[in-house]
Amino acid sequence: MTQELYQKAIRFAGAKHAKQQVPGTKTNYLAHVSNVAMEVMLAHAQQPDFDLDFAVQLALLHDTLEDTDTDMLELIELFDGPVAFGVSALTKDENLPKEKRMQDSLDRIKTFPREVALVKLADRITNLQQPPEFWTEEKVEAYKKEASLILVELAGSCDYLEDRLIRKIEVYRR
């Protein structure tokens, strides 16, 4: 079942993110969402106490509402309500002031099944690569601090991913 769900979700994400690149690179954005899914699958191999099918779909679709023309109805129709609402929780509310968006998303994530939190951890692990050259030191430090907030807020979600995020935070710098 996981393979079919993976294929359906990655095809949808690939079509939606077709013209998007990983910020600061020329890499197609599909590399990012597939890396998030890979983190989730590796976590499941180490700690198989969560719904892998649900988590993989969330991982592959986690940026579709935030970064594409996808809407909730489309996600509900193509996937299901739990997946769509999980993706919604992972989506920052653009109507809020920028400094409140992450905390709002984390607060919403904590009201959902833990697979949503696992995806947020995996997403930040994946994002803690070499920062884009155009980022200032202040931006790099703010991103690192935000990663620590995610770790604290979502503590208890998945030991494996929490340990991975701790290690990524420790080495994250320009």
Rank of each mutant, 00 (worst) to 15 (best):
A122E: 07
E138T: 12
T25L: 03
R174V: 01
E4W: 00
L42K: 15
D67P: 00
P113S: 13
I169L: 08
M1K: 14
H17K: 05
L5I: 03
A55E: 05
E4K: 04
D163Y: 00
Q129S: 10
A45G: 13
L65Y: 09
V36N: 01
H44P: 07
Y172H: 06
R167H: 10
M41A: 12
V152T: 13
K19G: 11
H32N: 04
E66N: 10
I76E: 15
L149K: 11
W135R: 15
T70A: 09
T27R: 10
K139T: 13
G81V: 10
Q7H: 00
L128Y: 01
L161H: 04
H17I: 08
A59M: 01
D63A: 12
A122M: 04
L106M: 09
E170Q: 14
K16Q: 15
A37S: 10
M72G: 02
M38H: 14
A43C: 15
V140A: 04
C158W: 01
R174Y: 11
T111A: 12
A59Y: 06
E137A: 13
H62F: 03
T64N: 15
R167P: 00
Q20N: 12
M38K: 12
T70D: 04
K168W: 00
P48D: 15
D123H: 13
Q103L: 11
K92V: 13
K110R: 15
K120Y: 08
K26D: 08
L151V: 02
R114F: 14
L90Q: 10
K26T: 09
A45V: 12
I169W: 07
K139Q: 14
D67H: 15
Q21N: 11
S148D: 13
P82G: 05
E115M: 08
H17R: 06
E141I: 01
L149N: 09
N95M: 14
E94P: 02
F54N: 01
Q129Y: 07
R173Y: 05
T25A: 03
D53S: 12
E138L: 11
V171R: 14
F79P: 04
